[in-house]
């Protein structure tokens, strides 16, 4: 008897929802390839991270409750972002220190919440993808993905199976790009400096493509590359793994 297909809820994230829907569809395709039944709970909006990181615990808690209610019924919650994934898997339970009922629920949800690529590789044992991409890519390790969700080897392993793609490393792939949520607009000069350091590092690899697993970083890096007149193509790693790079131009590139 075949193993029952796990029911996976996709937490789309605001930035994917608003800026890059293709990443959401890429995630669905990859999850289905990995033998999952994918649902998109319609009650979702935002994980509450902007409020949480701005010190507004009450709002963060309010939004967190909605996330817990909407996603707890599924076997897994998968997020195409280490940052929002980290919010659900690491931080939301800390919001309910004085609310044992929700604390328990939040912890149960946290335990079954994963960043997309690490879920495919570590939980579903995906070894390779059927996709092709012509180019040399360098992969930026988004901070929360790397340090909160343990995403490091998984995207590189799966990218290695993409036909036509070669991967080169930056000198500092683990250094923050300067996005930092509201940081990038509260301290724009510092943020820019960090983004420029990142684009310099990207340029020195000679790669023609920059990949990462978090839309925040990708918008920031793509925005800076675009301003510098760079031709480096910027994409979410899921688009490449799902073979969906033909359906949408790179982030920040012209469509017409």
């Amino acid at each position: 008897m075949p193993e029952p297909r796990p029911r996976v809820a996709l937490f789309v994230t605001c930035l994917v929802d608003l800026f890059r829907p293709t990443v959401g569809f890429a995630a669905i395709r990859l999850l289905e390839q990995a033998g999952c039944e994918v649902a998109v709970p319609m009650a979702q909006t935002c994980c509450g991270q902007p409020a949480f990181n701005s010190g507004d615990r009450a709002t963060a808690r309010d939004l967190a409750r909605r996330v817990v209610d909407a996603f707890l019924p599924y076997d897994f919650t998968v997020v195409p972002s280490g940052s929002c994934g980290g919010m659900i898997a690491r931080h939301i339970p800390t919001l309910f220190e004085d609310d044992p009922a929700y604390r328990g629920k939040a912890e149960r949800l946290a335990a079954k919440t994963h960043e997309l690529v690490s879920f495919l590789r570590d939980v579903r044992g995906m070894e390779r993808v059927e996709a092709a991409y012509h180019g040399t890519a360098t992969y930026h390790d988004s901070c929360s993905g790397l340090r909160e969700m343990g995403v490091k080897a998984q995207p590189r392993a799966l990218l290695a199976s993409v036909a036509g793609l070669s991967l080169v490393e930056m000198a500092e792939p683990e250094t923050c790009c300067g996005f930092g949520g509201t940081f990038c607009v509260k301290y724009p000069e510092i943020s820019l400096r960090m983004a420029s350091d990142k684009t310099k590092d990207i340029a020195s690899t000679g790669a023609d493509t920059l990949l990462a697993g978090d839309m925040g970083c990708l918008l920031n890096i793509a925005g800076r590359l675009r301003r510098e007149g760079s031709t480096v193509r910027v994409r979410h790693v899921a688009e490449v793994l799902a073979g969906m790079t033909d359906s949408v131009p790179p982030i920040g590139a012209a469509r017409e």
Partner: peptide, 19 residues
């Protein structure tokens, strides 16, 4: 969006939302 666009562009959204 001056804080953002002072030194970088803002990539345009695809147009449709995912939802």
């Amino acid at each position: 969006a001056g804080g953002w666009t002072a030194g970088r562009d803002l990539p345009a959204p695809e147009g449709d939302t995912f939802m």
